[in-house]
């Protein structure tokens, strides 16, 4: 299905959030995720199904002021 990940259109085969992140190569330890602009805690990744056209923000620690 087609989803949007960090502003890029992506085609993925997996259904759950955890499986999609693994499929796309994200490291679980460094990632936090919002789906459709709502925070999804890591404990919910296994059970959270992603749907076509959903928007994922996958963020990582960065320098900041």
């Amino acid at each position: 299905m087609q989803i949007n990940v960090n502003g890029q259109e992506q085609t993925v085969e997996s259904i759950t959030l955890r499986a999609i992140l693994e499929e796309l190569g994200y490291d679980e330890d460094d990632s936090v995720v919002a789906v459709n602009s709502e925070f999804v805690p890591k404990v919910q990744w296994n059970d959270r199904n992603i749907h076509p056209n959903d928007t994922l923000d996958v963020l990582a620690p960065m320098v900041g002021g």
Binding site: N6, D27, D30, L59, P61, V63, G64
Partner: peptide
């Protein structure tokens, strides 16, 4: 010290390096 969160690209590990050092 202050930090932020930004969109990441799986092929770039810059954030991990920063966080490990911090």
């Amino acid at each position: 010290v202050t930090t932020s969160l930004r969109r990441q690209n799986p092929s770039q590990k810059g954030g991990k390096s920063f966080w490990n050092k911090l």
